[in-house]
Design a protein around this nucleic acid. Sequence first.
DNA 1: AATGAATGAGTTTTCATTCAT
DNA 2: AATGAATGAAAACTCATTCAT
Lengths: 212, 212, 212, 212
Amino acid sequence: MNQSNPSELLTTRRDRRIERQRRQIMDAAAQVFAEKGYAATTTKDIALAADVGESTLYNYFENKRDILLGIAAYQEARLDKVFQQAVTMETRQQMVDVFVAVMDIVLSQSHYIRALIGEAWVNDEILNNHLVVRLSQISDFLQNFIAKRVASGAFRPVDARLGARMVIAEFIGAILPALRGVEPQPDPRQRRELAEGIIALWIDGVNNGNFR
Amino acid sequence: MNQSNPSELLTTRRDRRIERQRRQIMDAAAQVFAEKGYAATTTKDIALAADVGESTLYNYFENKRDILLGIAAYQEARLDKVFQQAVTMETRQQMVDVFVAVMDIVLSQSHYIRALIGEAWVNDEILNNHLVVRLSQISDFLQNFIAKRVASGAFRPVDARLGARMVIAEFIGAILPALRGVEPQPDPRQRRELAEGIIALWIDGVNNGNFR
Amino acid sequence: MNQSNPSELLTTRRDRRIERQRRQIMDAAAQVFAEKGYAATTTKDIALAADVGESTLYNYFENKRDILLGIAAYQEARLDKVFQQAVTMETRQQMVDVFVAVMDIVLSQSHYIRALIGEAWVNDEILNNHLVVRLSQISDFLQNFIAKRVASGAFRPVDARLGARMVIAEFIGAILPALRGVEPQPDPRQRRELAEGIIALWIDGVNNGNFR
Amino acid sequence: MNQSNPSELLTTRRDRRIERQRRQIMDAAAQVFAEKGYAATTTKDIALAADVGESTLYNYFENKRDILLGIAAYQEARLDKVFQQAVTMETRQQMVDVFVAVMDIVLSQSHYIRALIGEAWVNDEILNNHLVVRLSQISDFLQNFIAKRVASGAFRPVDARLGARMVIAEFIGAILPALRGVEPQPDPRQRRELAEGIIALWIDGVNNGNFR
DNA sequence: AATGAATGAGTTTTCATTCAT
DNA sequence: AATGAATGAAAACTCATTCAT
């Protein structure tokens, strides 16, 4: 690591400082957006949460909306990484592992996700560019996962599309209370149990064989 | 001008007119709240949608928030009626019927529900008094429904609480895209198929007996 | 004046009230714009001068710029009327009359003109749409006026374009000090003398016949 | 590193560098002031145009206004030089020469002048200290020039004050379009023709002897 | 009962200036 | 000397609410 070019180093250092500050602001903003929603959050709220002057925000973001978009963009990178590991999923146990992994990620940055979901509820741009895109990927993967097992006879001839949507719904249903803050975040053991319970229900249903 | 009981009649007529106007305003407001969210909606938006002057709103509601609360209260009455019929649910077919009935109600007043969900996402008062209350009732009923069948041996020994939450999640997952407006509302036949598919999955799972 | 349609009357009255208020704001704004320039004038300045709340401005104009454009548009109507009488100009005496008439108009609404000139100095839109347009009309008329007299032998073979520009320059040079406020506005007698002096100089020059 | 007189030399070199930088900033600022006007120009605009950091401006000027005053002061020096040669003006030809000389100077630094005129329009300090002062000198000189020729019988008995103001107005009217940027700057030949035309008109008028 | 108009209290955003490096 | 970053003060503009009619 012989640093022959000092100016390059300086630039890097400066860039890192800027990036750190940007992230700190996004972090504070995501927190407030999550609690009050984007529209009800004032730049003053954000500045207070980020512990900077209100005008300082504008050294890092064009405007308030740009902070939201920054949050959304930053989020993408982190989420995309996780979904890649889903590809290896084969056995019931691996499904549980992936489930837990995604839950970990989502809950570890819950205020980012909560902020985005809240805005996506009223904002088509955020919805389509940041949530629908991602959910479609997941849904496609799951549909394929189901269809293959239906073909092999491992699964009953269920509608792959509906099946995929239901897993997603169950997953969301499982974490939503914690995301929204009505329930505390589950600890690691609870997460695994939750995941196992959901997967078991999804695979085997509730029926003992004689309910009709 | 034959008024057998002028004062009583007038009051009644007047009350009805007032109530009609209130409802018209709530309807218009719910529409706008659903689209833009409560915080981003201005009283001007509401007045325009309701086709009245902005200050006229204040003859029917204390303030902007009061319109939201009015919407929430109005909603309760309508929803409560539906849930009562759920009590009779016994067979798989009856489950489907209830499912469809609730779906019909929810989708028929989708902008009310959409408005409330949006606000509940950031507003604990709305969340607790209007959504959690209702979902708890449903969850309690479902847990009991499941527990009884587990006890009778009709269902496998599943966690009743988790089972209940999963039905709810699946139901919500099924109608959310239409509620949010990313998908068109399903027609009656599609609703029944959807309900049947979900119930079938929930009861029997995807497993063909040999997936582990 | 049998007013058979009361609603029409009401509308008219209301419209008149709105128009009066708009004009009052434009008047106050023109005053401040003239003194400080558009950019240095705050909406607070305007509101104070118009004796209304700052937010009231926005009931009558979209934004600050719109007030300026309102002033410009309002100005057009008044100026255009004057220039029409110029067409009759034939004799030296009539030239003086027109000169005085235009001077009267311009000085009677000096703060409007001063505001516009100030902004036209830095704003191409205002310059082209409101000053150049008008000056071109005048210049065209004058060029024609000169060309005809050159053709008839009444004038020496001067360049009509230059001649026209020079009358305009002389006129502006005559009123500019009063417009800008460095000199008091000339009284009617002074205006006539000024007009006569300028026309005389323009027609006959300074030469006594032997300066070369 | 042979410095015969290190401290003196350094100071001098340093002073020159400082002066060069000041001038560069004033030049950039004048350019932007000319285009947008002083009030609408931000320090960021100036810094960008001068290609320095925003805070660097404050090493050379007290504040934004000080830059404007610097421009005004710098301008004086350059203009004063020119007016001195006017004293020699005697013949018609010499008048044209002076006219052209002043036109050259003014147009060569048009953005300085344009910036100052723009600000003088709304700022009495700039107007009086920088424009009126100068124009008064010129006017005085011209009045004297005219009065002498009226006394000698070379000129008709015109009002010297009005005559002076008219030459000035004609000069300004001739270069204003180029100054403001609505017309391209005239090339040297055009300048001479313009000057000759104006002087001719001023001296001999348009009359062919029989217009009244 | 309906509403046009006015506005105070904020909200977002801008910008000249300072300061630490 | 140069400047990136921070910011107080103020700008333009918004909006829920009131009030007179």
